[in-house]
Design a protein around this nucleic acid. Structure first.
Length: 687
DNA sequence: GTCATGTATCAA
DNA sequence: TGATACATGACC
């Protein structure tokens, strides 16, 4: 190479034999023939799969001539990195490199299949940044493991969607037809759609998909669990015809999962449904992202960096400029926040429609009696509930929702049952030992002289956890009616027949009744409300609403009865069937207490010394507060140290700065080989 | 993470 | 002086 050539193409392409021959004295150097390098775009930018935060960026490699055709953006490759063979994805081909040293050649193109489409590559970067995680972690969530056999098979192109959109079916929502027509016209509406009981949410989502397909665009819908997938799967088969969509779910086995994934990435199919992993599906020309029941915690990914399917989908909608729908019976505070900022518009049914569809009654609970006499089991079922069940079970199935004991419970006022809050940071109070005053679960401030903010009461109680023998109890109380149980501990039933039966179910495991339940009774509502979590009320109402929505229309005699405390705002919202009102109330309370979503919160978990150092090194944005450390009960590290947790919160406008600071912290720690810390942005549970 | 290199430390 | 240990930084 002459000098002038070298100047024209500064850092380009080098000797692939840059293998360090000199350094090895012991072994004779392996003589490697120089690999001929591709003539066009000889540089491949590769995301390498290394679990180190400070190496979480693309690295440039030389493309051997033999791989020039296959090493396209999106393919899996093997590369030499720090003396080891590691996996990676090519994200770009280029004529030049910024790297001043020489480039290693790609070792191998694993397969020419372009599994990481550009839009998903960008998405993984955005999700990693948002959650202060590494891109390689997000890539593991986004691209399923390769299955060579499945890859050899061609993907059958889905037949075109011929079904015509029928927006008029949703005319009982004033904004409904407009949203569906906009989708069909190729526009990108963004909506929070609150489904009134009696409407089949799966049918509604199928309609939105048909409309989007009508504009020639793809659609992606995430649902919480497998039963929901089946329900939507059926609705889509019915509405669009078989084979127009694929299901992308982790539980369908590696081959089937990869087959579905390839059908999407190859563009053979552009309508996708699935559980949270589907949020990253490489849908081409994505026109609509949608989520059913975004408040369900199954949408939370349990693997690092713990992204929430709703947030992933919203980032996608933001990046593609596509439509987004949050569809649910209840309303999450995050959905409410989207309305508040004007990002999304509200789709709700007017009051008279709601009144025709659902009627919720309330009867007082006998919890106090139970607390005094835990043996008095029948005290749990007030006579009003028993009468309703007896009458309703003559005409068809009745549903009894019983929360299972075992949630981490927080302390509450023993007079009015308002959850006890820390006076310093509004975190929940809890008891850690018999001889200690209650203390805050977030900032550890002890509260020896606690006084209820609502009623001035001074007594604290931990709610009694009783194990529900509801099924037996009901079987005795209503002889002759078959009792069926659906619970996550035993077996979850998908549906029940339209015949007289008592169906006892834990929250989230309620079967769908063909034709609707004649009555729904919500038992022990206080137990759901006693969850030691910031979202206790929101989550309780969501679970009640989802069960209550399975009842037949009020106009056909369907009745819902909740057993609980009439003064609780959650139960009031349920009785009025006003999930949006509750979300507004919650969001206002959280705003004044500097809690999410008005604030952005992150938690840091690890050994006490590591964390102390980490928090000191954090370059937090203005207005940030650090709460803690607080011991995490039951968790110890290898050194038998108590694991502790800090909570960091910033004004919402500084959310990106917080994520950046946490990402930088992780990178810094990884450079210095310090022990790993668990960092969670928007933690699933708080308190 | 691995690997190579640099600096400190110590016995002979 | 060489052997060994540990810290540091690059990794394309």
């Amino acid at each position: 190479m002459t000098t002038s050539e070298a100047e024209e193409q500064p850092a380009l392409l080098p000797a692939p034999e840059r293998v360090r021959v000199e350094a090895r004295k012991a072994k004779p150097p392996t003589v490697r023939r120089p690999v001929p390098i591709a003539e066009v775009e000889p540089v491949a930018r590769v995301l390498v799969d290394v679990a180190l935060a400070h190496l979480d960026r693309p690295f440039d490699y030389a493309v051997p001539e033999t791989m020039a055709a296959d090493a396209q953006p999106g393919v899996r490759v093997k590369v030499r990195f720090a003396g080891q063979d590691v996996d990676g994805f090519v994200i770009e081909r280029s004529a030049t490199t910024e790297h001043t040293g020489g480039l290693q050649p790609l070792r191998r193109v694993v397969s020419a299949e372009r599994v990481l489409i550009p839009h998903v590559a960008a998405l993984t970067g955005a999700v990693a940044a948002r959650y202060a995680g590494t891109r390689s972690d997000v890539l593991r969530l986004a691209v399923p493991p390769r299955h060579a056999t499945a890859e050899k098979e061609p993907s059958e192109p889905a037949p075109p969607v011929t079904a015509a959109s029928r927006p008029e079916e949703f005319a009982h929502y004033p904004e409904g037809p407009g949203v569906l027509e906009a989708l069909a016209a190729g526009a990108s509406p963004r909506g929070v759609w609150t489904v009134v009981p009696g409407d089949d949410w799966a049918h509604l989502l199928a309609e939105a998909v048909v409309a989007t397909a009508g504009s020639g665009r793809g659609a992606l819908v995430c649902v919480p669990d497998h039963r929901d997938v089946d329900r939507l799967d059926n609705a889509l088969n019915e509405r669009l015809g078989e084979g127009r969509h694929v299901v992308l779910a982790a539980d369908s086995g590696p081959a089937e999962r990869y087959r579905a994934f390839l059908a999407i990435s190859r563009g053979a199919v552009s309508i996708v449904i699935g559980t949270r992993a589907a949020a990253f599906a490489p849908v081409q020309n994505l026109g609509l992202v949608a989520i059913w029941d975004d408040g369900d915690d199954l949408h939370d990914e349990p693997r690092a960096p713990y992204p929430h399917a709703r947030e992933v989908l919203l980032i996608r909608a933001h990046e593609t400029g596509g439509a987004a729908l949050l569809v649910a019976h209840a309303r999450s505070v995050e959905a409410e926040y989207l309305l508040r900022t004007g990002w999304a518009t509200e789709v709700v049914a007017p009051r008279d429609v709601v009144r025709r569809r659902i009627s919720v009654g309330l009867t007082g609970d006998s919890d106090r009696d139970l607390a005094r006499d835990p043996g008095a089991r029948t005290a749990r079922l007030p006579s009003e509930a028993l009468t309703l069940l007896r009458d309703a079970a003559r005409d068809g199935p009745v549903l009894v929702q019983t929360p299972r004991a075992g949630y981490a419970t927080r302390l509450a006022c023993d007079r009015c049952r308002t959850p006890a809050q820390c006076s310093t940071c509004h975190g929940p109070l809890r008891l850690l030992g018999p001889a200690r005053p209650p203390e805050c679960a977030w900032c550890a401030t002890p509260a020896p002289g606690w006084r209820c903010t609502e009623c001035e009461g001074q007594g604290l109680r931990a709610p009694v956890l009783g194990d529900a023998r509801t099924a037996e109890e009901l079987g005795r109380a209503l002889p002759g009616v078959p009792v069926r149980i659906s619970s996550s501990r035993d077996r979850v039933l998908a549906t029940v027949e339209n015949t007289p039966a008592i169906v006892v179910a834990t929250p989230g495991a309620e079967p769908v009744a063909i034709g609707g339940y004649t009555a729904v009774v919500l038992m022990d509502t206080w137990l759901l409300l006693a969850r030691s979590d910031l979202r206790a009320t929101e989550e309780a109402v969501r679970r009640w609403a989802n069960a209550a929505a399975l009842v037949r229309p009020a106009s056909d005699g369907g009745r819902v009865l909740a057993v609980g405390d009439a003064t609780h705002p959650g139960l009031q919202a349920l009785v009025r069937w006003d999930p949006s009102g509750l979300a507004r109330r919650e969001i206002e309370e959280r705003q004044s207490a500097h809690l999410p979503p008005a604030s952005r919160v992150a938690t840091l978990t690890g050994g006490p010394d590591d964390l102390e150092q980490a928090v000191a090194a954090l370059r937090l944005p203005d207005g940030a507060e650090v709460l803690g450390p607080v011991p995490v009960p039951g968790v110890r590290n290898a050194l038998e140290e108590q694991t502790v947790r800090y909570v960091v919160r910033v004004p919402r406008s500084s959310g990106a700065a917080l994520s950046a600071a946490l990402g930088e912290l992780q990178a810094q720690r990884s450079t210095r080989k310090l022990p790993h810390l668990r960092v969670e942005v928007d933690p699933a549970e708080l308190g």
